[in-house]
Write a protein that binds this DNA or RNA. Structure first.
Length: 437
RNA sequence: GUGGGCGUAGUGUAGUGGAUAGCACAAGAACCUGUGGAGUUCUUAGGGGGAGUUCGAAUCUCCUCGCUCACCCCA
């Protein structure tokens, strides 16, 4: 293939017509569900002050350290393409004084995000998130409701094996204590760890818990569990979350090694995955079965973030779903989406007078909200029927010289080939009825 | 940032040093200016780019670009 001179930047994609339907479907489902729960939509700019993210997400996180697209404006501002949605929403919350809105303040968003990283399965440099943020609500019930909302969205998208992995990473107080405990534990077992974890054990010990290396796993299984070392407040909160989860009947899985890479999380963290059907054990597929499914939704509580960005002490929690990941599971599971804009009726015309009349008739269909299609550039009836067939309409309307003179039109049902003569003036009405069935 | 695989018409592919690079689908046209799903015929269109080895390269080597998968990390 001769590659054109210009192509999409690495890790970014044109979203073509086929995929548009998926994005649209997910957006529609999300909006319906989320509106029911009283969320208001918010759109923030694609770029923000870079400092917002280094402060909010954390300077030492990978996202800020190496994955941000940054730019200097002519005026000298240092901006970044947004790598995630929570921090900008918090910024907007503060900027517009939303703390004086009745609590809880519930916001949602849908849009593109950018991270400069190596693309691979389910990760792109430009991707889409649909996310929720709730402010001024400290009760553990809100944590669970957010999970419930995403669960419902996924259910509505026909996901069947949804699992919520959940953990608590405490607050600043008990986390530092636990970290110390863990570092000490790991120090005594340094030699048994993989090279990677040796490095991590000092700087980011929580990450070691997540290591897949077998030898590390063995050590980890004896490590002190965070859950046993939560302070009383966090413990109570987590207990509440679990109780509400039970009450809501949501399928969850306690994952004491679940740690998230963004600094702002406190207490509850969770991820939602869909178990992709266990392929029967072909040799090739064996690896795939063992692989952890990509998480579709990630989120948690961030009680310190609002204050960190200059607001009052405000409890908050939220989560975001990766649209591309959801789409890829939908495709894998062959979950189909149908466009509401696929045409149901095709207008075929023969001869000049018929063509002129068709032009008007086509507009009448639009007004009647019946999606119609045509091929006015073709003159042969045969070709027009061929096209109608390819498009897959239910009915083709045939209008020729003779019909125009007699004030009628032929309705051909494509499936059966049966034809019916209808008065031209009544055609919209008749088609409305037919399509209702 | 590190490592593996890959790159042939719009799409999916064949061809592992030799002649006009083959096939399928898609697209367009004709058979056929009043009835589709089929058929036949024709048309459009191809080795990512660059360098090298060679009498000769889609095929071998190097560089580069891109895709993909994995590590890291994340949605």
């Amino acid at each position: 293939m001769k590659k054109p001179k210009f192509q999409c930047p690495t890790g970014m994609h044109d979203i073509l017509s086929g995929d548009q339907e998926y994005y649209q479907k997910i957006f529609d489902v999300a909006r319906n569900v989320v509106s029911f729960y009283g969320f208001q939509k918010i759109d923030t700019p694609i770029v923000e002050q870079a400092e917002l993210f280094s402060k909010g997400v954390g300077l030492d996180t990978d996202i800020v350290e190496k994955e941000m697209y940054t730019l200097r404006t002519k005026g000298g501002d240092f901006l970044a393409l947004r790598p995630e949605g929570t921090t900008p929403v918090v910024r907007a919350y503060l900027e517009h004084g939303m703390f004086s809105l009745p609590s809880p303040v519930k916001l949602w968003y849908f849009g593109p995000f950018f991270r400069y990283e190596h693309p691979q399965a389910g990760r792109y440099r430009q991707f889409h998130h649909m996310g929720l943020e709730v402010f001024k609500e400290k009760g553990s019930i809100m944590d669970v409701r957010i999970m419930q909302i995403f669960y419902n969205i996924l259910r509505e998208l026909k996901f069947k094996n949804i699992v919520i992995n959940i953990n608590s990473i405490g607050d600043n107080k008990c986390r530092t204590q636990y970290k110390r405990l863990l570092i000490n534990f790991l120090k005594s077992r340094q030699s048994g760890l993989c090279a990677n974890c040796k490095k991590r054990s000092k700087k980011n010990p929580l990450r070691v818990l997540d290591c897949k290396e077998e030898k590390c796993q063995k050590i980890i299984s004896n490590a002190p569990q965070f859950i046993d070392h939560l302070c009383e407040e966090c413990h109570e909160h987590f207990k509440g979350v679990l109780e509400f989860l039970d009450e809501a009947g949501l399928p969850y899985n306690l994952d004491s090694y679940l740690v998230r890479g963004l600094d702002y999380y406190t207490k509850t963290v969770f991820e939602i995955t869909e178990e992709v059907r266990g392929v029967s054990a072909n040799d090739e597929d064996e690896e795939r079965i063992q692989k952890k499914p990509l998480s579709l939704v990630g989120g948690g509580r961030y009680d310190n973030l609002v204050k960190l960005l200059g607001g009052k002490d405000t409890p908050a929690c939220g989560a975001a779903a990766g649209i591309e990941r959801i789409i890829s599971v939908m495709k894998e599971k062959e979950i189909k989406v149908v466009s509401s804009y696929s045409p149901k009726v095709f207008l075929a015309q023969l001869g000049d007078s018929a063509k002129k009349k068709s032009l008007r008739l086509f507009e009448d269909f639009r007004k009647a909200k019946i999606v119609a299609s045509e091929s006015f550039n073709r003159d042969s009836l045969r070709d027009q029927l061929k096209t109608a067939n390819k498009i897959g309409v239910d009915y083709t309307l045939i209008l020729g010289q003779k019909e125009v003179l007699e004030g009628i039109i032929i309705v051909r049902e494509m499936k059966t080939g049966k034809q019916q003569i209808v008065k031209f003036d009544k055609i919209i009405e008749v088609m409305k009825k037919k399509l209702k069935k």
